[in-house]
Design a binder for these strands. Sequence first.
DNA 1: TAACTGTATTATTACTTCTAGTACAGTAGT
DNA 2: ACTACTGTACTAGAAGTAATAATACAGTTA
Lengths: 125, 125
Amino acid sequence: MFELDVRSRKPIYEQLVEKLKQLIINDVLKEDEKLPSVRELAQQLTINPNTIQKAYRELESQGYIYSLKGKGSFVHPSGKVDNEEELKKVREELKKLFAEAIYLGMTSEEIAALLQEVEGGQQDD
Amino acid sequence: MFELDVRSRKPIYEQLVEKLKQLIINDVLKEDEKLPSVRELAQQLTINPNTIQKAYRELESQGYIYSLKGKGSFVHPSGKVDNEEELKKVREELKKLFAEAIYLGMTSEEIAALLQEVEGGQQDD
DNA sequence: TAACTGTATTATTACTTCTAGTACAGTAGT
DNA sequence: ACTACTGTACTAGAAGTAATAATACAGTTA
């Protein structure tokens, strides 16, 4: 499914959250699609089930997946995500990153071009 | 100068790097301005000098400040920062964040508006 | 009932952060 | 030369976090 860098300074469960988020955002994992079970994914990646669960819990609290006891964990339908808290964080991060990009010499045109690139890729894939 | 959240999950030195970066980017700390010495800032914030040094070392490696033995640490002039590695990271982060923002329901117009806002604030303050 | 699912708890190990103390080297003013 | 600043480096230990391991409980499905 994907790889993790165990030697990284970043915690494994954070890497997992990021990777899964990317897969969901880029529609590799479709709406309501079932994710691998905690134990199954743990076996595939040869890491502890508790670590997987921690990542799933985080993803659920951020609104990216939902979990049903006895059934499994599923991708939260994109349109129905209503996470104002998460949106606020993203806006703040965007502002910081814009300031940083400009400081490092990027023009707003370059940045806008990146945005268009990503926007196009969303429908396409 | 600023405050740190010791109870945060984030390492103190990382918080320090972020805060100082913001001050530099937003021109609160001007070009070639002298930063507080390692020991001085440590005393002000009541944290260990080694922690400050770690933050300064990180900021220097990212091109935001430069340090002169016996003299002090200073803000790197913005125009002369040429950190292609850092720029690459920022581009990647921007792409991820754009995808995430769109997924959470932001339109590219909203995102572009944020960019304009930040761009205007750079000259203004 | 059996075999799956998520979830929770406790204990232990491993790793990172942070602190503490010390030391060395360069700069500036006296 | 002396003093008092600067940055930098190193070792050792304490404290906190991440990751593992083992177990248990609850809900679903066939």
